[in-house]
């Protein structure tokens, strides 16, 4: 994968301040009454500085769990193993005290539902300042002016008046802007966004996505964007990783994956979305439903729904391998056939 991302000016990968996020073998399991559920299995991906990486999949594919595992937000009985390298340190092995110093300062997170993520009984200005109290030595007055500045950055009108208002006085789009302002308070180098626009209307979603793109440019920040909407990926991300049943099945540059998917699931997802000029025709749906995480099919987890499946798919699980270039990876025995298959349009 994007090895160049790990190399600093000295070619040194250890303890390099400029390295992005490197996730290797990240696995998160939950013990449930029905057995062990592997919510994220052997997840490998990289995020270069200033890059927006989309993590795509349907509900239960493990994309949100992956994001939370990076931040160490998995509570017992969940268990996380593997490595998350962030500037030469392993976030998974880190003590909770060290993690607290990184969360909210170097790495920030925004969530899908801003109303439940914000504290309903505190004014939003105070919630922005809380982050500054935890991670900076700014004085009261400096914090207030920084909060005001942040509200302006994220485009909240009449910011000085609205600092003293409560979350319920904001609309959904404005609440998400407040969430982003809190996340940006300490100028993070990495933003983890978990379905940030799913609860919003399309015109508001458009505003928030464009805001994220602007902020990425302005603050040279990396973003991991979790979404189920391929349109959002096409409109914002540089690279993407597709997840199915807890595993990454395909990664690559967004344009490459959209133009020529190499995994049958990615192909099915792209075919499921209506396109222009095909009105009232049958969509290329994927038959069946995603498997239960406690009872995964043997071999490739996608084989019961896959039209390219052969005997080997039932017996062996394909590993994520580089094809064509080091950043283009796919976990499928038949990726050549999938890539050759007739275009979706």
């Amino acid at each position: 994968m994007a090895m160049s991302a790990n190399m600093g000016p000295n070619g040194n990968t250890d303890g390099n301040e400029n390295a992005g996020l490197v996730v290797r073998g990240l696995t998160t399991t939950f013990d449930t009454p029905r057995g062990q559920a592997i919510a994220a299995a052997d997840v490998d991906f990289d995020v270069a500085p200033g890059e927006i990486v989309g993590l795509v999949g349907e509900s239960g594919s493990g994309k949100s769990v992956t994001l939370r595992s990076i931040m160490g937000l998995i509570r017992k009985p969940g268990r996380t193993t593997g490595h998350v390298d962030w500037r030469g340190r392993d976030l998974v092995a880190m003590s909770s005290e060290e993690l607290r110093r990184i969360r909210g300062s170097e790495i920030a997170m925004i969530f899908q539902e801003p109303m439940t993520a914000l504290n309903p009984v505190l004014p939003v200005g105070l919630q922005i300042e809380e982050n500054l109290i935890a991670h900076t030595t700014l004085t009261t007055r400096q914090r207030r002016s920084r909060a005001l500045e942040l509200m302006n950055i994220v485009g909240i009108p009449a910011a000085d008046r609205r600092l003293d208002e409560y979350p319920h006085q904001f609309s959904g789009g404005m609440r998400q802007r407040v969430m982003i302002a809190i996340a940006l308070a300490c100028s993070p180098k990495l933003l983890l966004a978990d379905e940030p626009t799913t609860a919003l209307d399309v015109t508001i979603q458009d505003q928030i996505l464009k805001l994220l793109l602007d902020l990425r440019d302005r603050m040279a920040m990396s973003v991991v964007l979790v979404t189920h909407d391929l349109g959002v990926v096409a409109a914002t991300c540089d690279r993407m990783a597709v997840m199915y049943a807890g595993r990454i099945v395909e990664t690559g540059a967004v344009a490459e994956v959209f133009a020529r998917p190499r995994h049958s699931y990615t192909r099915g997802l792209l075919g499921s979305v209506p396109r222009s000029g095909t009105s009232r025709t049958m969509l290329q749906s994927i038959e069946g439903t995603p498997p239960s995480l406690t009872n995964l099919p043997t071999g490739c987890a996608f084989h019961p729904r896959c039209s390219f499946a052969t005997d080997i798919c039932l017996k062996e699980r394909p590993v994520l391998e580089a094809v064509t270039s080091p950043t283009r990876t796919v976990a499928c025995f038949h990726h050549e056939r999938v890539a050759e298959a007739e275009a979706i349009l």
Binding site: D206, Q207, L230, T236, F258, L270
Partner: peptide, 25 residues
């Protein structure tokens, strides 16, 4: 027109940075 422009296009080549519609309902 604004609603159509705000809906993200499935083609990564057709990306633009202009906000389709400012303000809220």
């Amino acid at each position: 027109k604004a609603l159509l422009e705000a809906a993200p296009e499935l083609d990564p080549g057709q990306r633009n940075r202009k906000v389709a519609l400012r303000g809220e309902l």
